[in-house]
Computed example of a mutant assay.
Amino acid sequence: MNQLRDSLLDAPIIEKEGYHYFVHPISDGVPMLEPELLREIVIKIIRKAALEDVDKIVTPAAMGIHISTATSLMTDIPLVVVRKRQYGLEGEVALSQVTGYSENEMFVNDVDSGDRVLLLDDVLSTGGTLRGITGALEEIGAEIVDVVAVIKKEGGGNELDDSPYDVKTLINVDVVDQEVVITDPHGDG
């Protein structure tokens, strides 16, 4: 059974400022996230991601947290959450997050030069969030070992296309006529 695929096919679609957005437990926390779905996703992440010698998992708040926490628990790799709140701690690095539907300032703490990191997120759509975080991690001097997003939404004009990072995804989808369509059931990478 493929719970990720099935749950996406059942996902409702909303429109926000001209952007067609699917509502899903992984990307929105709504509807309720079943443990079986989370477990399936984490197993797929562990199989797909380059985890050897990774020092830290880095994820953006808020919707990357549950995926990354579960992955951290399964791999014993510490977790760093990129927050939308500034704490003013030593070494904190600010970045700009621009997506298809929002713009925020985010802050990275607890990543040091030389750290080998896995960047993990829920959805790759425009690539704006991951572009901002990869830039901040590069500025810090961290080595980005791998970048994984659970779901890729096609047609977002991915800002990482011209970067050195090939984002691995678990499943690729598009929204056509108010429905989620699976464009690649195995994702990229």
Score class of each variant (00 low, 15 high):
M1Q: 07
M1N: 09
N2I: 08
Q3G: 07
L4N: 03
S7Q: 07
S7M: 04
S7A: 11
L8G: 03
D10N: 14
P12S: 09
K16L: 14
G18N: 14
Y19I: 08
Y19T: 06
H20R: 13
F22N: 01
H24I: 03
P25Q: 07
I26V: 13
D28A: 06
V30F: 04
P31Y: 04
E34N: 06
R39L: 03
R39W: 04
I43F: 08
I45P: 00
I46A: 14
R47H: 11
K48T: 15
L51T: 00
E52A: 11
I57M: 02
V58W: 02
A62W: 07
M63W: 00
I67S: 00
T69I: 09
A70R: 04
D76T: 08
I77Y: 02
V80M: 04
V81W: 00
K84Y: 07
K84C: 06
G88L: 12
L89K: 13
G91Y: 10
G91H: 12
V93Y: 12
Q97N: 13
V98W: 02
V98Q: 10
T99W: 06
T99F: 08
G100N: 13
S102A: 15
S102V: 08
N104W: 11
N104M: 12
E105P: 04
E105T: 15
V108E: 10
N109T: 15
V111C: 10
S113E: 08
G114T: 08
R116G: 05
R116M: 05
V117D: 01
V117T: 05
V117G: 04
L120I: 01
L120A: 01
D121S: 09
D122M: 05
T129W: 03
R131W: 13
T134V: 15
L137C: 09
A142T: 07
A149L: 05
V150G: 02
I151A: 01
E154I: 09
D162A: 15
S163M: 14
S163G: 14
P164C: 08
K168C: 12
T169D: 01
T169F: 00
L170Y: 00
L170T: 00
I171K: 00
V173R: 01
V175M: 15
V176Y: 13
V176K: 15
D177S: 14
D177L: 08
E179T: 11
V180P: 14
V180L: 15
I182P: 09
T183Q: 12
T183P: 07
D188A: 13
